[in-house]
Design a binder for these strands. Structure first.
Lengths: 147, 147
DNA sequence: ACTCAAATAATAATTTTTATCAATTAACAC
DNA sequence: GTGTTAATTGATAAAAATTATTATTTGAGT
């Protein structure tokens, strides 16, 4: 995952370039966004950092995510149940497949996506700028456990 | 739009069939869900009914939507900005195209949807149960106004 | 090291949704 | 039609999530 290390440095560089201070709290948040395997929530990030940083405040997490979002370096995933999760590894819109049993999230490459975007443009005459594509179902692991 | 009239009666019948009382407040909420042109929010519904029903409570709107949702007769659309909108006309998942200028929502028929679902299943080995597909962009009306 | 604007931490305020509960009322039996 | 009963309503409180406020602290440049 050298890709993730790059993301970490890309985000920090962007913060510097835009004149923001590089604080330890900020570094810790960026590290989790860029390197953690899953799609962490604000609470996830807060709890994890609190271990090494007992004075960490929830507001700091919110403010930093807001900042990094405004730089276009993290993707916010608001789910129908109201929960928000963040992806600092792929900050651009992309499809997600979510297991409704174990909450695992998979990110497929879909060849049919380009064609669908064209179909949408043709049919609606919209200029499509971005999208949000989620599929919900049961993953193979959970199907096996059910037997 | 005889379709929408049908939806109104289908929902009320389902409420009756499941032993729920048909109150004037409930009828008003169902009417908006089934007949209003857009995708109303809880607040929209509340404000609109308050005109004829000054004693209407927000909690009543929430409780009724929860009930109708549990009967599978309304689709809840939670958007990334945290807002929730409801569709009582097509209560099953379907793609939406949203104008980020005027908030207009269009519902296209996409031939490529079935193929994409198959591709998702093949690639991820998930059993796909439902989906949420939103495209965001600028509608042709708003593009014309910009000139 | 010094200065200063920016960031943090703690908390208050706001927003959205859900829970509580006494008063009301729709539906059914008679 | 009238009475009974359990569901529903309405008002408000509570809960949950996010944003705002502000005194204090600190990173970064001089």
């Amino acid at each position: 995952m050298t890709d993730n290390k790059d993301r970490y440095e890309i985000i920090i560089q962007k913060l510097r370039d835009n004149g923001h201070k590089i604080t330890p709290q900020r570094l810790a948040i960026v590290k989790i966004l860029a390197k953690s395997e899953g799609h962490p929530s604000v609470e996830d990030i807060y709890v994890q950092i609190k271990k090494d940083f007992p004075t960490m405040s929830l507001a700091t997490v919110y403010k930093n995510i807001l900042l990094i979002k405004s730089l276009g370096e993290v993707l916010e995933l608001g789910f129908p149940d109201g929960s928000n999760r963040y992806d600092g590894k792929k900050p651009y819109p992309h499809p997600h497949v979510i297991c409704i049993k174990c909450r695992k999230i998979v990110e497929p490459d879909l060849d049919s996506l380009d064609g669908m975007k064209k179909e949408v443009s043709l049919e609606t005459h919209f200029n499509i700028l971005y999208h949000r594509l989620d599929f919900f179902g049961i993953c193979s692991d959970c199907r096996i456990k059910e037997r």
